[in-house]
């Protein structure tokens, strides 16, 4: 990419990569932290034990994790989606000028093509 490359073409790959990073991060957090915590909290303890958990216990800290992390994890995923959409919008934004440039060159080349084609 040279100096004449529009800024949109330089920026969109960064946004796409950031989108991938955030969505992959959400999957990793879901797989590594939330899934085992939920499986352990609900699968290894009866309702009676879960309800009787005292302050400072492992069960209550697991419940804290399960209640708090998803609250920011979902917006993080959508932030990733927003990065993708911004990248796509930036790419679309340069198409009108490219079509105009091509049209200008075509209007110069057309009489030439007609002449040479005869």
């Amino acid at each position: 990419m040279n100096e004449n490359t529009p800024y949109q073409l330089k920026l969109f790959p960064v946004l796409t990569i950031l989108g991938w990073i955030l969505i992959s991060l959400a999957l990793i957090i879901g797989l590594v932290i939330l899934t085992p915590t939920a499986a352990n909290y609900f699968g290894a303890n009866s309702k009676e034990v879960r309800d009787a958990a005292e302050a400072g216990s492992v069960l209550l800290s697991q419940l804290g994790v399960l209640a708090s992390i998803p609250l920011w994890l979902e917006p993080l995923i959508f932030l990733g989606v927003a990065f993708f959409i911004c990248g796509i919008a930036l790419e679309f934004s340069i198409i009108p000028s490219l079509v105009k440039q091509r049209g200008d060159v075509m209007s110069q080349a057309f009489p030439l093509i007609v002449k040479l084609g005869k």
Partner: peptide, 18 residues
């Protein structure tokens, strides 16, 4: 079963976003 029900959404939802 409850363990599966309470945990699957944590990996299935991000997977669909992948």
């Amino acid at each position: 079963q409850l363990s599966v029900i309470s945990s699957y959404a944590f990996w299935l939802n991000p997977l669909r976003m992948i």
